[in-house]
Measured scan of single mutants.
Amino acid sequence: MATGGRRGAAAAPLLVAVAALLLGAAGHLYPGEVCPGMDIRNNLTRLHELENCSVIEGHLQILLMFKTRPEDFRDLSFPKLIMITDYLLLFRVYGLESLKDLFPNLTVIRGSRLFFNYALVIFEMVHLKELGLYNLMNITRGSVRIEKNNELCYLATIDWSRILDSVEDNYIVLNKDDNEECGDICPGTAKGKTNCPATVINGQFVERCWTHSHCQKVCPTICKSHGCTAEGLCCHSECLGNCSQPDDPTKCVACRNFYLDGRCVETCPPPYYHFQDWRCVNFSFCQDLHHKCKNSRRQGCHQYVIHNNKCIPECPSGYTMNSSNLLCTPCLGPCPKVCHLLEGEKTIDSVTSAQELRGCTVINGSLIINIRGGNNLAAELEANLGLIEEISGYLKIRRSYALVSLSFFRKLRLIRGETLEIGNYSFYALDNQNLRQLWDWSKHNLTITQGKLFFHYNPKLCLSEIHKMEEVSGTKGRQERNDIALKTNGDQASCENELLKFSYIRTSFDKI
C-alpha cells in the first residue's frame, strides 16, 4: 500500500482533458527560462521544448504516446526543470519506465491550478516501474492521483506527508504495488545497510526511497516546507523545498512566496507586481503582455491589467481597466465587458449561442446573426445582446428569417469595421425574408467608422429604411451602385405612401 494514499474509496472516473512563447529569463536562482504550460502528445517531438525550461508557468501534460519505446527515452533528460506552477499529468506514455532521468531536479509542483483537485496525476502508464522524482520536495496545493499503472512499484516507500501538507485526498490505487509483488529495495538494503531515512506512518517504520538508488530526502521537522541542505541544516524561511546553503534567500532552489532578481522575498516591493503567484514583474512586463494579447485571437491570451499590486489576466467583477495605466478602477454604474472572439468572429444561430455573449459591452471581433427560429426570440436576444455598444469588426445579418427588427441591439452605437466582410463591408444584410426595420432612427444613433453597407434580398425592408441608415451611420456616399439592390429590397412591402385627393359631386333626387 502506498504510504499516505487512500484505498478502496469510491472515486469519480478520471477524465483526461485534452506555445513556446518565453516569458522571460528567471535569473540567477533558476538555471534556465520560464516556459508556458505545455500539452505534449502523440510523439516526442515537442518534448524537446523543455530543454531550457527551469519553470513551467502553467501545467505540463505528457500523454497518448503509443509508439514510443524505452530506448526512445534513454537520452532524454531535462535537468534544468525545477518547478511547475500548476500540475504534472502523465497518461498512456508507452515505453517510459521512470522519471528519474527525465526530470531529475523537479523540486516543486505548486498546484496553482489543479487537474480535478490533483497536482500530480500518473494514470495508465503501462510501462512505468517507478516514479523516480527523487528531488520532489513540495506539492504546495492539491493532491496526488496514481492509478492503474500495472508495473509501478516504489510507492509504499514514499512518505507523501513530507511532500504535501495533507495526504487525506491522495488516491493511489490499482498499481502493481497493490499486489505486494514489488519487493522494493532501498539503497544499501541488499548489503544489509540502512542508507535512507525511515519514518513512521500508520504504525509502520519504513525506509523512504524513490528507487533502488535514490533515497527520499527527509528534512528535520523544524525546517517545515522550506527544505534543508545535504547536511540537514534548514533553508531560509522564504525558500521552498530545498537550498544549497542554509538561511540564505539567494540560495533557495525555489521560493515559498515570490522570486525577485535572484532572491526569494515575502512580497513584491514597489515598483514590482505579483505575477502568477510566484514571481515579481515590473510595469513594462505587464504592459507588454497586455499589448501582445490586445489584437491576438490565441486562446488563453489575456490583456493583463494591474489590481491590488498584482498583474492579473482581467479586472475583477465591479472594476474596469483604465487604459492609460492598466489599473483596475471601480465602475460607475454597470461595468464594461470586452469579449474577445477566439477566431475573430462568432455566429449567433440560437439563443444558446447568444447567451455566451451575455453582459458583453464591447465585441472584439465580428458578429454573424443567422437565426431561423426560436421561442420568445426578441426578448431572449435583447437579454443577451442588448448591452453590446461596440463591435470592432463587422455585423452580418444573414438568412435570419425569424427577425423582424434589429432593435434587440438596443445599445449598439459603434461598428468600427477594423475587419470587413469580403474585404469591403462593415454591415452586411443578406436574404432576411421578414426583416422590416433596422432601428427606430428617431431614437437610435449608430456610427460606422469604416467599410460599406450591403443589402440584398431583404424583400420587406424598404429602401427608405436603408437610406436612413446611410445618413445616420455616416456611410452615405461610400456605397457603390450594386451594394444596395434596388429590386430585391422592399419588393414585397408597401414602401411608397402617396396622399390621394378626392373630389365629389353631391346629387339628390331633384338636383344634379
Rank of each mutant, 00 (worst) to 15 (best):
C53S: 01
T320E: 08
A198T: 10
V121E: 00
F205L: 11
L174G: 11
D277S: 12
L233Y: 06
N150F: 04
V281D: 01
Y134L: 08
C239S: 00
C255G: 00
S98I: 02
Q245V: 10
I222P: 08
P249W: 07
D75L: 09
N308F: 11
W160V: 01
E207Y: 07
I222F: 09
A156P: 12
T250V: 06
T329W: 07
H59Q: 11
N308I: 06
D39K: 08
S225R: 09
L99G: 02
H274A: 10
R110F: 04
V305E: 02
I62K: 00
G232C: 13
N149K: 00
R110H: 04
E130Y: 13
S161V: 09
H307L: 05
V93K: 00
P79W: 14
V167M: 01
T157D: 12
L64Q: 04
N42L: 07
D277F: 04
E238D: 14
P36C: 15
L131I: 14
M125Q: 05
Y118R: 02
R110L: 09
Q61R: 05
C186S: 07
V265Y: 02
H307D: 15
H236W: 01
D184F: 14
G188D: 10
F116G: 12
C280M: 00
I172H: 03
P330W: 05
P269N: 01
E314L: 05
N322R: 10
N149R: 01
W210Y: 13
N202A: 08
L76H: 08
G188S: 09
N135T: 10
T157I: 09
I62H: 01
H28T: 10
S98F: 02
C286I: 13
R46A: 13
D261Y: 15
T68Q: 12
C35W: 00
T68L: 09
G262S: 10
R162I: 06
P197H: 09
P187S: 07
N135V: 01
H290V: 10
I82D: 03
H59L: 01
Y319C: 06
G203V: 07
N105W: 02
C223A: 04
C255F: 00
F91Y: 11
P336A: 05
V34E: 05
E180Y: 08
C186E: 04
T229G: 03
E231T: 09
G262W: 02
N117R: 06
C243S: 00
G132V: 01
K310P: 02
F258I: 02
L99P: 01
I40T: 04
M65T: 03
F66V: 13
P197C: 06
G95L: 02
Q61M: 04
V305T: 06
H274N: 15
V126T: 11
P313W: 14
Q245N: 12
G111D: 00
I84K: 00
S244R: 12
Y30C: 09
C215K: 08
T329H: 05
G232L: 10
L90T: 06
D72G: 06
I109V: 10
S237G: 08
T85W: 01
I122P: 06
A119T: 04
I185D: 07
H307G: 02
I62S: 00
N105Y: 05
R298Q: 02
L50T: 02
F275P: 01
L89M: 15
L88M: 11
F258E: 01
T189S: 10
R256H: 05
C234N: 02
N43P: 02
T229S: 10
E180V: 09
A254T: 03
C280R: 00
D169E: 14
H226V: 13
S237V: 04
L240Y: 13
L90M: 15
L88P: 00
N322Y: 06
R46Q: 06
P249M: 06
V55Y: 05
F275K: 02
K251G: 15
S323Y: 14
F78Q: 02
P104S: 01
L114S: 05
F283V: 11
P79V: 03
D169F: 09
C215I: 10
I139L: 07
L233F: 08
P220C: 03
G333C: 04
Q245M: 08
E71W: 03
P270N: 12
G58P: 00
E97S: 07
E33R: 14
R162G: 05
P336D: 08
S284H: 03
F275R: 01
G203D: 10
K217C: 04
R297I: 07
K224M: 04
V265L: 09
R162S: 06
S324F: 08
T267L: 03
P197F: 05
V108F: 02
Y94N: 08
L128F: 13
L44T: 12
H302R: 06
W160F: 13
R145N: 11
G262A: 04
P70Y: 05
I62A: 01
L29R: 11
R162E: 14
C209Y: 02
P79C: 02
F73A: 12
S161Q: 13
V200Y: 13
D39N: 15
C293S: 02
Q303W: 06
L90V: 07
N43G: 11
T140R: 09
G333L: 02
S237C: 09
N179L: 05
T107D: 02
C243H: 00
K191E: 05
C182G: 04
A119P: 01
S317I: 09
P197V: 06
D177C: 10
N322M: 03
E266K: 15
W278C: 02
N325E: 11
I146N: 01
P79D: 04
V144I: 13
E168I: 07
S166L: 08
G111Q: 00
L106H: 02
C243G: 00
E314F: 01
N149F: 02
Y134M: 13
F115H: 02
F116S: 12
H212P: 11
R145F: 06
S244L: 05
